[in-house]
């Protein structure tokens, strides 16, 4: 991966991403937006999407481990790496708690864990404690849980996949160290009927964004614990992958409403949808907000190979960040110190 353009004073900072075309060779790397310098960070063995700790000092990402995938936790400068004592061989999608002390992720006994006959407990919410260097399972084995995100230091939201009589469905669950409970019916009256995915908590505004096929196709909803659930993308084309702006005012998401996968943002209070990166002949995906919420980094295959781009929200000015024949994927903007 090479840096295509040295960006000016804005945007600044670093992007972590996954670089490499073959899955076996994909590596977490850092791209410095001011200098263009690219620094390899991960071991380069099936490295997965990185996520930053809230203080911007640590990175967590999945990488190949014995008989599966493990979560690697390391300082961004490479000076320290933690070996998580995993209970399960398959671990994925790490997320830091708001205070950076805990790391939640999905842990599973098998890679192919979406099987109705053995669904209960097939995947769990695992939590790693940075201070104690311990891992524990949260919740119970009554439901298979995926993709945890933090509500607060003692609670995560996770997607539970549930075997039904005719087909599987999923619901949103509140998970604590000792309990698993679905969202109250008053908040989610369609529980058990649809397949929800990609829940994202807005801690600042006390909102929950998620996607669901409620309504016939995949849509992005925002659940306010005061006002209930609202379809904020509302289009007959698929809309998915909501990502909150750090300040919590806007929600970026991917949509196919122009034909191909593009990036849009929506102001949930008024459901005002604004295109950010949309094209007729190529895809744009995986939006990642800058810490100040003024830019979105994302992946685009406009040159035939997936590379990183950055668009300034207000002006639409777009700069290509990486070039080369290797893929650049899953950007994550380093939090401001």
């Amino acid at each position: 991966m090479m840096c295509a353009a040295v960006l000016g004073a804005e945007p600044a900072g670093q992007l972590a991403c996954v670089a490499g075309t073959e899955q076996e060779d994909r590596r977490v790397e850092l791209v410095d937006l001011a200098t263009g310098a690219v620094t390899p960070v991960g071991p380069g063995a099936h490295d997965g999407a990185p996520t930053w700790s809230p203080d911007g000092q640590w990175l967590a990402f999945p990488t190949a481990g014995p008989g599966g995938m493990r979560i690697r936790v390391m300082r961004a400068d490479g000076s320290e790496t933690r070996e998580i004592p995993h209970k399960h061989p398959w671990n994925d999608v790490p997320r830091w708690s708001p205070d950076g002390r805990l790391l939640a992720y999905t842990g599973a006994k098998e890679a192919d864990n979406i099987r109705p006959e053995s669904l209960a407990g097939a995947a769990s919410v695992m939590v790693y404690n940075m201070e104690a260097n311990t891992e524990e399972a949260w919740g119970t084995d009554t439901v298979s849980l995926y993709r945890p995100v933090w509500m607060n230091a003692g609670t995560v939201i996770a997607i539970g996949v549930i075997p039904g009589e005719k087909r599987l469905s999923s619901d949103i669950f509140i998970v604590t160290p000792s309990a698993v409970n679905p969202l109250p019916a008053i908040a989610m009256p369609s529980a058990g009927q649809y397949v929800e995915w990609a829940a994202e908590v807005n801690v600042r505004e006390n909102l929950l964004a998620y996607e669901s096929n409620d309504g016939g196709d995949r849509e992005v909803f925002v659940l306010s614990f005061k006002r209930g659930s609202t379809d904020v993308s509302n289009h007959r084309a698929a809309d998915w992958n909501p990502v909150w702006q750090p300040a919590g005012l806007w929600l970026a998401f991917e949509s196919f409403r122009s034909g191909r996968r593009g990036i849009y943002r929506v102001f949930p209070n008024t459901i005002r949808v604004v295109p950010v990166a949309v094209a007729a002949e190529y895809d744009n995906w995986h939006p990642a907000w800058s810490p100040d919420g003024a830019f979105l980094a994302y992946v685009s295959d406009r040159d035939g190979t997936p590379q990183l781009f950055v668009t300034e929200i207000e002006t639409g000015d777009t700069r290509q960040v990486t070039t080369g024949s290797r893929f650049a994927l899953a950007p994550a903007w380093r939090p401001a110190p």
Partner: peptide
């Protein structure tokens, strides 16, 4: 092969969705 991975690295799912629809 490209789909036996986590969502974030799935580079072809956009094309898959477009063609499926």
């Amino acid at each position: 092969k490209d789909f036996v991975i986590a969502d974030a690295l799935d580079t072809q799912v956009g094309e898959l969705q477009r063609l499926r629809r």
